[in-house]
Amino acid sequence: MRLSKLQKGLWALAAVALMAVGAAVVFIDRSSPSVEQAEFRPTFALPDADGRLRSQADFPGKHLLVFFGFTNCPDICPTTLAEVAQVMDDLGELSDDVQPLFISIDPERDRELGLDEYTEAFHPSILGLAGDAAQTRAAADSFRIYYEREDSADAPDGYAMSHSPALYLISPEGDWLGQFTYGTPASEILAELKARL
């Protein structure tokens, strides 16, 4: 099929329009990364520190409390993991029904630094997961969260990670139940969990 000049022009225009829509979608994604209220089922398949691939199916009957972070993060990540630890302690026996997950968004460096020793320092129940770049991006996309490496001379190894720092609650069936934004007091998280367990 031979295209006339006009047809070629129209196709080019269409391509440009498509790219613009694509750019707009990416832009919207980045500017409003908070999780939507609509129910959806995030998925993940990521290795733990021993290299065992973990997914939702490994935690039957448990609610998941999921945080995406990196172990070189001195402020927000320890603060949030400390809250998770507090919640797990306060849940008492009910804590058997909750699995906290720390998903590394800086997996290569975190594996080198030691994932287990980090999560265990906060609470033995917290399981650290660190995949490869593709697995990590897939998990983050499925949770509809944002993360990005930011090169900076003022950070260890010359880079830091910017990321969505909320805690996500997933039902035993895999449904996304809600998010706790950074700074939500442990008592509120505890109350929400107790109401569901």
Binding site: D75, I76, Y146, D154, S164
Partner: peptide
Amino acid sequence: LHQTVMTDGIASMPH
């Protein structure tokens, strides 16, 4: 000295 900054729900940590 750093500051954790939240922009549209994203935490970053500029100098």
